Simulated assay, not measured.
Amino acid sequence: MTLLDPALVTPRDARAAFREGVVTPTSGWSAGWTQANLLAVPRDRAYDFLLFAQRNPRACPVLDVTEPGEHAASIFDGDLRTDLPLYRVYEHGEQVAEVPDVRAYWRDDLVCFLIGCSFTFEAALLAAGVPVRHLEARTNVPMYRTNRECRPAGDLSGPLVVSMRPVPSGLVATAVRITSRYPAVHGAPVHVGDPAALGITDLGRPDYGDPVEVRAGELPVFWACGVTPQAAVTASRPPFAIGHAPGHMAITDARDDAYVVP
């Protein structure tokens, strides 16, 4: 499939492209359509994860949940096994595969959770004049594990993961105001400024995604990130889970403006 401008691609065509083998971070794709993180866990672990999400809503805002074995959702009219660009498969907390199709790993007891993604508010940031550096650089957003522990649930625990965007100091208040209107997709930042306060020692070495330049006069701004569930999987070592590769999201049939509050 030939794609000239990913921002203009419909969710249906984006999913078809990923099904046909296009592998790419999805920031900037399908402008106006909501993107989501994915975590699929066996039914006997689903309550623990739902409770984990309820206790950590900034990092894990749940947009949709499937019935066991289902691989479509009310906001995703596609196949959650094939229609994301890249997946990660975990066994006992260890990543055992990174593949563009997880049908070979699929189980009929899996419950899929679609979790809000901060890509949803990036167009609003740009419209307000707030730069989004990874879009400028055409790279993945940088993401970091922090020293902040999430509130545990059942056997599930782990650190908060954050995404980072450099923001000119004079526009930080604007970025906070805009993103606070999107509580279902992480909302306002959890931290502004010194990364050491989050236990991050080197912005140039993100745990997920790609590094971006922080220029003179800019502050690093950190938002809770939907990769947090996968960090919890790594820390808690459940027998099995499937997630998206960080930055390689599910492009849904929901609109970004559906998640804006007045």
Rank of each mutant, 00 (worst) to 15 (best):
E136S: 14
I200W: 10
P246R: 12
P262V: 05
E20S: 10
Q35A: 08
R145W: 06
A224L: 01
R215H: 14
H71C: 08
S169A: 06
V161R: 00
P85F: 12
L50Y: 05
S169W: 03
G217N: 06
A123T: 11
L86R: 14
A97E: 14
P229N: 05
R145D: 10
P61Q: 00
R151T: 15
V22E: 11
E149H: 12
A16P: 01
P159F: 02
P42F: 12
T234V: 12
A173Q: 15
A216I: 03
F49T: 03
D44E: 14
T228R: 11
I200S: 06
P189C: 08
R205W: 04
R55C: 00
T82P: 02
G32I: 08
A254R: 09
T201P: 00
H71V: 09
A104I: 06
G78K: 01
T228Y: 06
T252C: 00
W29S: 08
A46K: 08
R19W: 05
P168M: 07
R107L: 10
V214R: 12
H92M: 14
G129V: 00
T201A: 15
A59V: 10
Y105F: 15
P246F: 02
L63Q: 03
T24R: 13
G93D: 08
V41A: 07
G199L: 09
R43L: 11
T252I: 01
